[in-house]
Design a protein around this nucleic acid. Structure first.
Lengths: 382, 382
DNA sequence: TCTTGAAGTTTACGCGCGTAAAGAAAAATG
DNA sequence: CATTTTTCTTTACGCGCGTAAACTTCAAGA
């Protein structure tokens, strides 16, 4: 582990502890006059000591006030707040965090922030954290295992009270994640990794697929299942299994279409895959259920390119449905019938779980798993 | 200002300095046994002092090593690195940042991270920062003035070497931004605010509109210009002005369609606006140039809903083009002809500008402005 | 060999704050 | 009003590190 660290350290990290050429050169070349030049205001309060003197209260009491205004005598509080009106002072965040055994930082780690699904869920969680008085810090691994590792290592050093982690999934370094979860109270979300973290909050993939398959079967031919051959996300596997199970239980012949492709360009993978699928000959069904909306967006693009009309009306060659309720799925052509995540509910459950985890001292005696069911959204594509 | 601060402080901030009920209660209730419970490894190195002893080097020299491994004698360096192999030690980030006059933090602030355009540009900048050895911290104001202010206040306390700021625009608190730019070396990007920050890196909106208008005029009827009536972003205004100027210079009659709507749901605004526009009667032209891709996505959705075929072929009722090359515009139906940002070039220019700004001590004698021209991308919508 | 000085190391101090323990004040109890 | 208890304040110390200044080492030049 020491070796691992040194290697990371020798390149670049998220801590600002060190070191690539550029940062080092710049840091070295910087002279002290820099920060000075900006402090034009003369009567700036230097530290809590000075502020305490000006407000006529001892520094430790002032310190208490900043940690909890209600914890000091009302008379003291009033004097401090009066001083706060007069002088511009705020405690040094680094000094605070150095001495506190726990900061108020909450880490939020997602696998790919440029994916609107993660951007949206991160947005909600982040705003919730702020409302609750925490300091959320958002990270994205951008699909890279190495980056995810570096983020987790850096985050550990930030002594967060808690972390929401949506791991890369198959690409994750399991050992690194296990180590992280051992050191930091972590709530996994979106992608479950068995046994990691104190809790998991995610979607009930079975419910997602059940609702879409049921609807599709009820209103037309049973769907085939369209997915990537080697999905990075464990949810994809769970959805396929759900599809197979549901079809089997209904006495229907399942049909899984697996398309090639790597990386996070799911739309393009879906588009190419759909072309290939159509080229390969007639489908056993006119109904395609995509593993997720981003693939479906690609499928719709391919259909459009081929002049295949998608939807449930007359003259439609295909029905396409999917899962996730991606923010854009409302605006595809045709708009996408999909099983929606309850974004707000997921975020709320995440928050709730993390809070009780923190209050429990960072450990649950048994790992909690919460699976939130889908909400079917009927639009025009199926 | 003291009053302003106190108010913010009394609610929640991004610093973890304080305070809403939840965070406070949790923090108060936490006892020391918490962090302890997780340090199972017995031989953990406490601090640099101890590590220095173990490596047989004085602590200040070790400190020097971590700030620049090349700055210590090769023999010392070797001994330190050998110790690093054996023991798991890394400097305390808070202590480092407290004492350094400048950290290696770089702030990246965008107005709305769930907008894929900002997610994408932030992604590239962030990865560049990491490669350069800095510690990028990503913030989103999520369209809220108050949040943008809090972010800037919190960021100031983080003593960043530099900040990339894409302000909200019209919604920004100019005074707050001015104050921030006075305290922190800032490169504005995307949205220019006259005189703020040491530099601006953005798009040459005139070039964007010129390329689309030229192309559209060359290949069909001159376009009308489709936009929001009260855009939050200054680029929108520049694009309208460019459109008017270009049309005028070409001796053509301009026609601006302004649609109502607030907030960041541009696709829906575009969709409704397009319906209204079409309801309002025949257009003076069959070509619509949208101010940005997200509006265009809405317009395409509306057209699809009405059965209006979009594109340049026979049987097409409308041509639609736009600006930005939104990550999704490749997958609209039809795919969107647009003027693309040079994402990489913008990010590179941002980095370059910030580095020279940092090396210049955080100030430029004259504010730098870089406008990067567009690259026309012909797809099938026009 | 002696000087000179650069390069590297050490000494010594300070950064701004949290917090345990001791002490003082206020509130509750009789 | 005296006493106990609680709440609050103060004293005193430590957190882990950066860095100026003093000191040492070592190589080169005379």
């Amino acid at each position: 582990m020491a070796a691992i660290f040194r290697k990371t350290f020798a390149r670049a990290n998220l801590l600002g502890a060190n070191t690539t050429a550029t940062a080092r050169r710049i840091h070295t070349s910087l002279t002290k006059d820099r920060a000075r030049g900006r402090q034009l205001d003369g009567d700036k309060i230097k530290n809590m000591e000075e502020f305490a003197r000006l407000s006529g209260i001892s520094r430790p009491t002032v310190s208490r006030y900043f940690n909890d205004p209600a914890s000091v005598r009302p008379s003291s509080r009033k004097r401090i707040e009066q001083a706060l009106e007069r002088f511009d002072y705020r405690p040094n965040i680094f000094a605070m965090n150095q001495n506190r055994r726990l900061t108020k930082n909450i880490g939020i780690v997602v696998p790919y922030l440029a994916d609107p699904f993660f951007a949206e869920i991160a947005r909600i969680i982040q705003l919730r954290c702020i409302s609750a008085g925490f300091a959320p810090i958002l990270y994205s691994a951008y699909g890279q295992q190495k980056l995810e590792k570096e983020i987790l290592e850096g985050l550990t050093a930030l002594k967060p009270v808690g972390v929401f982690l949506a791991p890369l999934g198959r690409m994750s370094d399991r050992a690194a994640i296990a180590r992280f979860c051992r050191d930091v109270p972590t709530v996994l979300f979106d992608s479950n990794i068995e046994g990691m973290g104190e809790a998991f909050v995610g979607s009930d993939n079975f419910s997602f697929v059940q609702q879409t398959v049921d609807y599709l079967c009820r209103t037309g031919s049973p769907p085939c299942f369209f997915e990537m051959r080697t999905p990075a996300n464990p949810n994809a596997n769970k959805r396929r299994h759900a599809y197979l199970k549901i079809m089997e239980d209904a006495g229907l012949q399942p049909h899984v279409v697996q398309v090639e492709g790597k990386g996070w360009g799911f739309e393009e993978i879906g588009r190419r895959g759909a072309h290939d699928m159509i080229d390969a000959g007639p489908l056993p069904t006119d109904t395609v259920l995509c593993s997720n909306d981003r693939l479906a967006i690609g499928v719709l693009a391919a259909c459009y390119e081929r002049g295949l009309r998608v939807g449930r009306g007359d003259g439609c060659a295909l029905r396409v449905a999917s899962h996730d309720d991606h923010p854009f799925s409302r605006f595809t052509c045709p708009s996408l019938t999909t099983a929606a995540h309850e974004y707000e509910a997921v975020a709320d459950k995440c928050m709730e779980t993390l809070f009780s985890l923190i209050e429990a001292g960072g450990r649950f005696s048994v790992r909690e798993e919460t699976l939130i069911p889908a909400r079917l959204i009927l639009r025009t594509s199926a």
